[in-house]
C-alpha cells in the first residue's frame, strides 16, 4: 500500500510525431486539490486521460491509488471518476435520466438509482431542471450536472479537467464551492486549469506543465518563492515624474526597475520590505507624489513567465486532440 494518490515515472504519450506527454514524473499525495497548470496543448488533458485509463501510455508507468493504470485498469476505474471537456453527459437525455443511467451502471436498483438521482439534483440545485434535456441547460448548470454525474458513487479520486473554462464568474464560484466541499469530504481532486487564479485559489500543490513536461512543482507560495521574492508596484501621480522615480528606486533597491505599460507605473522584484520602506521615503523626500503602491508576492503569471519564458495565456487555440 502507498499513500500516494498518483505516482508516475517517465510517462509518455506520442501522437504521430508529437510527444504530447514527454516523460512526466508525478508523486501526488492523497487528499486536497492538486493542480495541473499549463497552457492549451501543454499535455494536461493527455496526462489525465492516461491516469483515468482512457488512453494507454506509450512509455513509462503510472499508478493511481496504488493500482497500475494498464494492468489494473478495472481497479482504477472502480475508484476514480472524471469530469471535463472529454467526459460529459448525454445532451439528449434529461438531467435526471443521465444520473439514473450512471446509477444503474454502478449497480443501483431502479428505485435506488432514482433516489440517488433526486438526492444529487437537489444538492446541485438542479431539482427543477431535472426533467429538462441537458442540451437546454446553461453553462453553469451543465457543469454542475457533469460533476454530479461523477459522484453518483463517491470516488476516492476525482479528475476535473478545466471545470470552469467558459463559465461566467458566478458559475465559476459555484463550481469552486463544490470542489471545496468535495475536498472537505475527503475526496482527492486532480484539477487541470489554464487559469492561474484558479490554481491559486483551489490547489494545495501545483504542477506546472509545458510542452509535455512538468517544469515546476510545489505549493503556490513555493512556486512564487522560487521566482525570487515579492514584487513592488508603484504608480506615480504625474507620469512626468516616472523617470526620476525610476532612478531613485534603482539606487535604493539595487535591482532592475521595469517600466509598466501604464505610463505612470514601475515594477521591481525586491527581497525585503525594509529596503522598500526606505525607497518610498526617498521618493517622498524628492517630492514625488505616489498615486498608489503595492508590495506583494509575484502572481502565478509572473511565475509562469519566469519558468517558461512565455506567459500562461493560450497562444494557439488548437486543442491537444488536434495534435493527434
Amino acid at each position: 500500500m502507498t499513500d500516494l494518490a498518483i505516482e508516475t515515472h517517465g510517462l509518455v504519450k506520442v501522437f504521430g510525431s508529437t510527444r504530447a506527454v514527454d516523460g512526466v514524473d508525478l508523486a501526488i499525495p492523497r487528499g486536497g486539490v492538486h493542480g495541473f497548470l499549463g497552457p492549451n496543448g501543454a499535455g494536461k488533458t493527455t496526462t489525465i486521460r492516461m491516469l483515468a485509463t482512457l488512453s494507454t501510455p506509450d512509455g513509462g508507468t503510472a499508478r493511481v491509488l496504488g493500482r497500475d493504470v494498464v494492468r489494473e485498469a478495472d481497479e482504477v476505474r472502480r475508484r476514480v471518476s472524471l469530469t471535463g471537456q472529454f467526459a460529459s453527459v448525454d445532451e439528449d437525455l434529461t438531467g435526471r435520466e443521465n444520473l439514473r443511467l450512471i446509477g444503474r451502471l454502478f449497480g443501483y436498483t431502479g428505485p435506488g438509482a432514482t433516489r440517488r438521482a433526486n438526492e444529487l439534483l437537489e444538492a446541485f440545485g438542479l431539482a427543477e431542471a431535472g426533467d429538462r434535456q441537458v442540451k437546454k441547460y446553461s453553462g453553469g448548470m451543465r457543469r454542475r450536472i457533469d460533476i454530479a454525474a461523477s459522484i453518483v458513487v463517491t470516488p476516492e479520486l476525482l479528475f476535473l479537467d478545466e471545470p470552469t473554462t467558459g463559465l461566467d464568474p458566478r458559475s465559476r464560484n459555484e463550481v469552486w464551492d463544490i470542489i471545496r466541499a468535495m475536498v472537505g469530504s475527503g475526496t482527492t481532486v486532480l484539477l487541470t486549469t489554464q487559469y492561474l487564479d484558479e490554481a491559486d485559489q483551489l490547489a494545495d500543490r501545483i504542477s506546472v506543465i509545458d510542452s509535455g513536461k512538468v517544469i515546476a512543482e510545489g505549493t503556490s507560495s513555493e512556486l512564487k518563492a522560487s521566482v525570487g521574492s515579492g514584487s513592488l508596484h508603484v504608480r506615480v501621480m504625474d507620469p512626468a515624474d516616472r523617470a526620476a522615480a525610476q532612478q531613485i528606486l534603482v539606487r535604493e533597491l539595487g535591482v532592475e526597475v521595469r517600466e509598466g505599460v501604464d505610463p505612470a507605473a514601475l515594477d521591481a522584484s525586491v527581497d525585503s520590505s525594509t529596503v522598500v520602506t526606505r525607497a518610498l521615503g526617498s521618493l517622498d523626500a524628492a517630492g514625488i507624489t505616489l498615486a498608489q503602491f503595492a508590495l506583494g508576492q509575484p502572481t502565478l503569471d509572473e511565475v509562469f513567465l519566469a519558468l517558461t519564458g512565455h506567459t500562461a495565456e493560450p497562444e494557439q487555440s488548437e486543442t491537444e486532440e488536434d495534435a493527434a
Binding site: F106, R116, E122, A123, G125, T154, D177, I178, A181, T187
Partner: peptide, 16 residues
C-alpha cells in the same frame, strides 16, 4: 447547497 453536497458525498453506498 454546500451542506447538501457534503451529505450527498457522504454516501458510502457502493452497490454490487
Amino acid at each position: 447547497e454546500t451542506s447538501k453536497i457534503l451529505s450527498a458525498l457522504a454516501s458510502t453506498e457502493r452497490p454490487e
